[in-house]
């Protein structure tokens, strides 16, 4: 058992590094750091529902896009609201949509929910493509604000807040226990008196709202959005891969997966440009993780039980003495 304070060392170190980052790196790497934080936050938002509640959402990009489009519409002509006012507006729009989508479908088996969210995201993409007020396929421009440090620190704030909320709600509260209980056995959780429909809906709305905040910051940051860049299925794909790769249902899983995959993405982009090959890599990564690493990278270092040790220990044990395989 680790002491209370030892567990604080890594989070504090991360926050210190994040706070001091702009003094050490140039603007180019600061942009990459900003993007990495955004993806770590988005992966965490997907993990709230996918990892802790066990419901796969294939339309998370819908909420990212709703946040982005709300901010773009409210900041652009003729409304011209200040940036930080548009975030609550995006949250409100997203929360309403999440209740409408999740309310009926979360009561059903996960498969219907996966299809419903996917259909919702694709419908929104098509809607944004054909409507005039969204700028159609050409998208919308936002008033440019060229201050990398502003966006970096805004993203740090959003990401740290996301992880704090996740830590408090899902790892250290009764609410988190309810969510995990319904993931592990929904009928049993219901029999224990948990209102599973309500808990699922709360988790879903929280997850959606988180994604919309990142969408709002992203829109202001890149100053130009179109349906493909904020609603596109690739955005959801990437979140799913990040969480699966990092590890479902943990706090560090999405952080590892999000930062790691985004940096790999940028390195590929630097060497080969914007390539379809990356999509194939994403797909292969999902397949390989599901087949060989269902607990993700974080799972390699987590002790499943004191007896069997970590997956790494077992692998080493197998290599050395042909130890007992399989999980208990």
């Amino acid at each position: 058992m680790k002491s209370r304070w030892a567990g604080l060392i890594i989070p504090v170190a991360i926050v210190v590094v994040l706070a001091l980052m702009p003094t050490f790196v140039n603007n180019y790497w600061l942009r990459i750091a900003t993007g990495a934080l955004m993806w770590a936050g988005l992966a965490c938002s997907w993990n709230m529902l996918g990892g802790y509640a066990g419901y796969i959402n294939f339309g998370q990009s819908a909420f990212f896009g709703l946040g982005a489009y709300t901010t773009a519409l409210l900041m652009g002509d003729p409304i011209n609201l200040p940036f930080f006012v548009t975030i609550p507006a995006g949250i409100a729009v997203t929360a309403i949509c999440a209740v409408v989508v999740g309310g009926p479908t979360l009561r059903l088996r996960g498969a219907y929910f996966a299809i419903a969210t996917w259909a919702f995201a694709e419908a929104l993409t098509q809607f944004a493509n054909v409507m005039n007020f969204t700028g159609g396929i050409g998208g919308l421009n936002l008033p440019p604000f060229l201050n990398e440090r502003f966006f970096y620190y805004t993203m740090v704030g959003a990401a740290v807040l996301t992880y704090l909320i996740t830590w408090a709600l899902f790892e250290h509260s009764r609410f988190g226990l309810k969510v995990k209980a319904l993931r592990d056995h929904e009928a049993a959780a219901e029999a224990m008196g948990i209102n599973t429909s309500l808990v699922k809906l709360q988790t879903f709305v929280l997850s959606a709202v988180t994604a919309s905040v990142f969408g709002a910051i992203f829109a202001y940051w890149v100053t130009f959005i179109n349906p493909k860049s904020v609603f596109g299925g690739d955005i959801t794909d990437q979140m799913v891969v990040m969480v699966l790769l990092g590890g479902l249902g943990s706090l560090r899983g999405p952080a590892i997966g999000g930062v790691g995959l985004f940096v790999i993405n940028r390195l590929i982009w630097m060497h080969w440009g914007d390539t379809a090959f990356y999509i194939a890599i994403l797909g292969a990564a999902i397949v390989l993780v599901v087949l060989f690493l269902p607990d993700g990278i974080a799972g390699l270092f987590t002790r499943r039980s004191t007896k069997s040790g970590t997956v790494l220990d077992k692998a080493v044990g197998k290599l050395v003495g042909g130890g007992e395989g399989g999980r208990g």
């Binding site: 592990d184 799913v240 699966l244 390539t275 090959f277 999509i279 194939a280 292969a284």
Partner: peptide, 27 residues
Amino acid sequence: SRTARPELMALALTFGLFTLLRGGMLT
């Protein structure tokens, strides 16, 4: 399989397969 959510993992697998096929064909 005996993972926590086999239904979810199978869904993720076909999703990954689809992404792999799409990316591979585009490439």
